[in-house]
Each structure stands twice: as structure tokens, then as C-alpha cells.
């Protein structure tokens, strides 16, 4: 099968749908602050990042965890990559930009965001979205800090380029 359907439509699928709807709703509720390119980039970059990380550490030879019902690639993995990860990153860079965080405030903000996301991952693990086979929840915390930090870097990169080209940034 090219893409697997869920083995059984149970709480992990319901959780993914609920989080997706909630994340997208939060994203649309926020007052528009960025040009269209930033929204495109957040989705593309985080989809890319999620696939790259999973493709590297969740497949053999490392194979540290599985997502959802099958060890293979399934429909709900796509929904997870596309509608759960990018909106969360969007909210993080939105609030970072709105509050103009620098220095220690930025570090604290990243730690808090990573803690919240690790908490959400704990719930995901509990409902069966992730199945750890060597990975531990504690490892996710620095990964989230790095991921959000890279996202903030991406925002600065985009702004610098748009400014250089004389476009709205």
C-alpha cells in the first residue's frame, strides 16, 4: 500500500484531528502580522524539518520511534506533519515577534515553549501517536528548543532577504 490507512480509528487519530483543528483555528484567530511568504515558509520549512528528522532517526538503522498505528508511512503521519507541526511553530514565531524578545527573555520563552510542546508530546505518547523504541521524552526537550530557535532564525533570514529586495517584511 502506498499510504496506510489507520489500523483502527481510535484516540490517536481523534487526537491528531482535534490538535490540527485547534492549531489552525488559533493560527487564524491571531491578527495577521506577517506577509504571505512567511506563512508559506513556516509550513514548508516545518513540514520539511519534521520529515527530515523522522526520516533520519525513526527509520532503520536508528529506528528510535514509530508514529501512529503502523511502523510504515500512513495518512495520519501526513496530517501530523502538515497540520500539527507548522501551526505550532507559527504561533511560537508570532509571539516572539509580537513581544520583541531578546537575550534572557528569548531564552526563557524558548524554554517555556519547549516545555509546553514536550508536555503535548507526553499526551501524544499517552494517546498512542508515538511509540518509543529507544527514544525518551526528555530527549525531545532540547530538540524543540533547537527547532524553535531555527524557526526564529528562518524568520530573520526571510526578513533580511525581503528588506534587501525592497519587499514588505
Amino acid at each position: 500500500m502506498i499510504l496506510y490507512p489507520p489500523h483502527a480509528f481510535d484516540r490517536n487519530e481523534v487526537f491528531i484531528i482535534a490538535v490540527s483543528i485547534l492549531s489552525i483555528a488559533v493560527m487564524f484567530t491571531l491578527k495577521r502580522r506577517f506577509p504571505a511568504i512567511v506563512i508559506w515558509y513556516v509550513f514548508l520549512f516545518n513540514y520539511f524539518l519534521g520529515v527530515l528528522v523522522d526520516f533520519t532517526i525513526a527509520t532503520p538503522p536508528l529506528d528510535l520511534y514509530d508514529a501512529n498505528d503502523w511502523p510504515n508511512y500512513e495518512w495520519f503521519d501526513v496530517i501530523l506533519y502538515l497540520f500539527c507541526y507548522p501551526p505550532a511553530a507559527y504561533v511560537v514565531i508570532y509571539l516572539y515577534d509580537r513581544w520583541s524578545l531578546r537575550g534572557m527573555k528569548l531564552l526563557t520563552y524558548l524554554v517555556v515553549c519547549a516545555l509546553i510542546t514536550t508536555g503535548l508530546e507526553w499526551i501524544s505518547d499517552w494517546v498512542g501517536v508515538y511509540h518509543y523504541k529507544g527514544w525518551r521524552l526528555v530527549y525531545s526537550f532540547p530538540v524543540y528548543i533547537a527547532a524553535y530557535w531555527v524557526n526564529i532564525g528562518m524568520l530573520h533570514f526571510l526578513r533580511r532577504q525581503l528588506k534587501h529586495e525592497g519587499r514588505p517584511h
Binding site: 515558509y41 520539511f48 510504515n72
Partner: peptide
């Protein structure tokens, strides 16, 4: 900006296809 976007999109397509062909 376009260069990075193009590489990310190409990479996404290839990695997902690889998942489907190699594992599924």
C-alpha cells in the same frame, strides 16, 4: 529565498516518495 524553498520542496517530495517506495 526561492533557492531554499525549492530545495526544501524537492527534498520533501523525494523523502516522502522514498518512505512510500522503500518501506510501504
Amino acid at each position: 529565498v526561492e533557492l531554499a524553498a525549492s530545495i526544501m520542496f524537492g527534498s520533501l517530495m523525494l523523502q516522502q516518495l522514498s518512505y512510500m517506495l522503500d518501506y510501504n
